[in-house]
């Protein structure tokens, strides 16, 4: 997961100068060293992408090899007119809307507070980042137990302070929020660490100068910290949106898309049609539409960060 979320941020300096004349020996050496990558890359990434695109125009099935009969745009038409497909898309977006704000804002606040400490930073870094390295399956087991109606820790706490505990994962109105809460716990550390790194790059003398001028802590935060963290924030928000749109594990493990499909997200939908109903052609078409959603998010970020770079 980590490597996927950072994937999009690498600057891509496409500036390969051909200032030297290419010699056949150099040509061979270059291709020779790139060859293992190219072969694996074409077979396991580019190939499947194109195969998936082709498959989406056929009635492919998991039960037989080959593409099956041509479907034209049939799979796409079916997906676009299917209420279930759109409800899965909406659940994906809903999950993103539920997780992104807390994962950005809480991470920012905790990072700002931690950055002020003179001692003990390592402790908070440890506590907040540790869940991030735990497999989703363990997280799901622990939170399912915490959410167990009647005997789970969270419900009991709420009842102790006089509130009625919701039915967490079993209530269609609460299931998504419960999954989102577990996700915030699980992945907050990544953003927290990125923010801490961003904060460390702010020159300390800016704060000293400001406090000499009598600026309050709050003013310093508003006028120095937040503006200088803007690049970091854009990065974190973008990575978070893209990561949240890829939600699958927690939903599959904690609710299996239920209750009553209330938490069925897009990847769950693809999984259901491709691997339970064996309709791989249709699942490939749904995947392609889902990829458009993620590409739209990436594109939005690309435009935003380019504009930012031009301003800087």
């Amino acid at each position: 997961m980590a490597i996927q979320t950072i994937a999009l941020d690498t600057p891509v300096p496409v500036r390969i100068t051909d200032d030297r004349t290419r010699r056949p020996a150099d040509n061979r050496a270059g291709w020779g060293m790139a060859a293992p990558f190219v072969v694996i890359y074409v077979i396991f990434l580019i190939g499947p992408t194109l195969y998936g695109l082709v498959m989406s125009f056929f009635n492919s099935s998991l039960q037989r090899n080959g593409l099956g009969s041509a479907a034209g745009l049939g799979n796409y038409a079916e997906a676009i007119t299917s209420a279930d497909f759109w409800s899965a898309m909406w659940h994906t977006v809903l999950f993103t809307l539920m997780t992104t704000p807390p994962l950005v804002v809480v991470a920012l606040l905790l990072a700002i507070f931690t950055d002020r400490l003179r001692r003990g930073r390592w402790f908070y870094r440890l506590v907040f980042f540790a869940p991030y390295v735990i497999p989703s399956a363990s997280v799901a087991l622990v939170f399912t137990w915490l959410y167990t109606p009647g005997i789970g820790l969270y419900g009991t706490w709420l009842e102790d302070i006089g509130l009625t505990a919701p039915n967490w994962l079993a209530d269609p109105d609460w299931a998504m929020a419960s999954v989102a809460l577990a996700t915030v716990w699980w992945t907050l550390g990544f953003n927290f660490v990125l923010y801490l790194a961003g904060l460390q790059e702010i020159p300390r003398d800016l704060y000293e100068a400001a406090s000499v001028d009598g600026a309050s802590q709050f003013t310093q935060l508003r006028r120095i910290t937040l503006p200088l963290l803007r690049r970091t924030t854009v990065l974190i928000v973008a990575l978070q949106i893209i990561a949240s749109l890829k939600i699958f594990d927690q939903v599959y493990l904690m609710t299996a898309g239920g209750p009553n499909f209330a938490t069925r997200v897009s990847l769950m939908y693809v999984y259901d049609y491709g691997f339970t109903d064996f309709r791989t052609g249709y699942a490939a078409a749904a995947s392609m539409l889902y990829m458009l959603l993620i590409l739209a998010a990436s594109l939005g970020w690309f435009i935003l960060s380019r504009r930012q770079r031009r301003e800087a």
């Binding site: 496409v14 390969i16 499947p48 498959m55 890829k246 693809v270 791989t280």
Partner: peptide, 25 residues
């Protein structure tokens, strides 16, 4: 340059959408 661009394109493709074709492969 072509290889560079092709590799960069791969950054945009979420591995999750490859599950169906890759599984068939």
């Amino acid at each position: 340059r072509a290889l560079f661009a092709l590799t960069a394109v791969g950054l945009l493709i979420p591995s999750q959408v490859l599950i169906v074709p890759l599984f068939k492969e």
